[in-house]
Amino acid sequence: MSQISLNINGKTTTADVENRTLLVHFIREQAKLTGTHVGCDSSSCGVCTVLLDGNPVKSCTVFAIMAEGHEIKTVESLAPGGVLHPIQQAFWDQHGLQCGYCTPGMMMTSIALLEQNPNPSEHEIREGLSGNLCRCTGYNNIVKAVQQAATAMSTQAADD
């Protein structure tokens, strides 16, 4: 067991964990943030995607102990005070989710994608999201949602 402290969504969580504890389980069980999900054992599905220092990573393929001293952002950080983030609003408006299981990971990747490329083409969006599986939507509406969010976020940035 090792004691580790992680900054998740701006808040520090300290806990004793085994070295083998995966980041996703630390987030779900120690930090009690269950919006980040688990969908496979092979680092294939991306439903566990969170931002590690701003970059999307599969939290099932990182040991919690490796994240000591780093900043984690999960889906729970997106709507402080209940006002939806433009990406959340866009997924809602465009029917970019059905069962909702891939949605948190998909949105975290989308946010990082738009950070890197604020005005992506459809192909760039499809490429950028290709580490996150969705079994329900067929991706059409997810692409539309990212396009809507891109517009909303650039307008927001211009207003700032």
């Binding site: 999307p56 990747t109 999201l129 580490g131 996150n132």
Partner: peptide, 12 residues
């Protein structure tokens, strides 16, 4: 660099 694994895996 665009086809190694997948875009998220490439961040680690």
């Amino acid at each position: 660099s665009r086809v190694v694994a997948d875009p998220i895996v490439r961040h680690m």
